[in-house]
Amino acid sequence: MAASMTGFGRSIKQTENVTVQVEIKTVNHRFIEYNMKLPQPFSHIDIEIRKRLGKYIKRGRVEVNATLSGSWHAPKELHIDWNLLDSYYQFIQQAGERYQLSSGLSVSDLLHIDEAVVVIEGSEEVGNLAGVLMEAVEDAAAKLLEMRLREGENLRSDLENHIASLHLLVEKAKKQASKAEIVYREKLEKKLKELAGDMIDDTRIAMEAAIIADKTDISEELARLASHIGQFAETLRSNGPVGRKLDFIIQEMNREANTIGSKGSDSDISSLVVEMKVMIEKLREQVQNLE
């Protein structure tokens, strides 16, 4: 099923002391882009959240906002990088000997080495809440997908109506093109006989008409446009993300419509081309919302 790139999902999970809320919002974007706001202790699960969301979202700008509320007081843990501290100590000792300096090094000095002495949240408590947070992400993503699919179905219905209208315009243009060729031949024959009288024969008239008809022939363009319409309808019914492919097909449709407009000399065909381009623009606007 076609999915819209616009959607919203919210999930709230409750533990004994903490409420975890996750909101996911998506809007149109050419590719996929993430913007995440996570509580500080959980910034490390950013990549895991992206992997989970990848099952639900293939394209769009994704905003994830996760919050914690309640009486959460995780125990602190002191993490010490002894190897780094040893390196610092050795450097200070060597620098003192090299330059005849008195180090005066104290434990307090070592505590100020941010990279080596770090206070972190209790890993067990963070791990438990991270699991709850991931459950909320999955739940919010499922609700988001449900909304995107529902919106996508509405878009698909509108697109099918527009593409059917465009198909009718192409069929009208085909019929009108056949009529226009006959009318043009008759006008040309009349004009030539008025100018040359009996000095020009039917063979010459047919030759002149064929030359002009070849320059103004739009049958190939109409055939290609009809083919693009068929591809569009087929792609729209396929599974998975279809927006970018449909956008490319629309570009090809617009190219053929422009060529038909430039070659066609019949006023009725020109009017049909204007209607075609209006319908193609409606398709383009709607397709911008599809994943």
Rank of each mutant, 00 (worst) to 15 (best):
V20Q: 08
A173V: 07
K172W: 08
A95R: 14
A210V: 04
G197F: 11
L85C: 03
W72T: 06
A136C: 00
V118A: 05
I229L: 01
Q288V: 03
D202L: 04
N161E: 13
E194M: 04
K25V: 10
L192M: 10
Q176R: 15
S69G: 13
G60C: 01
G54W: 03
L155P: 09
F91I: 14
Y89V: 15
L53Q: 02
S102T: 15
V170T: 11
Q94N: 06
K25C: 01
R61I: 08
I250R: 01
S238D: 12
A3H: 11
S106N: 14
Q21N: 07
E77S: 13
G7F: 10
D214L: 03
I12D: 14
Y88L: 04
K277F: 01
R150D: 12
Y88I: 14
G9F: 05
D214S: 09
T15C: 03
H29A: 08
L68W: 05
D202G: 03
N28D: 11
S43G: 11
K193C: 00
G7Q: 13
F8K: 02
N161I: 09
L169M: 04
R224A: 04
V183A: 12
G131Q: 14
K277C: 01
S87R: 14
G261A: 07
M207Q: 15
I182N: 04
A173P: 05
M199E: 15
E256M: 03
L272W: 05
Q90H: 14
I45D: 01
K187R: 14
V132I: 10
Q176Y: 01
F248L: 04
D201S: 11
V118Q: 15
S265E: 11
W72P: 00
R237C: 08
R10G: 03
Q288Y: 06
S11W: 01
L129I: 05
E97W: 05
E48C: 03
L129D: 03
V119H: 02
G264W: 06
A66P: 06
A2E: 05
K76C: 00
I163D: 03
L290S: 05
K277I: 00
S43T: 12
P41L: 02
N254D: 14
M276H: 04
E221W: 13
I24A: 00
Q94G: 00
G122C: 07
I205V: 15
E291W: 05
V119F: 02
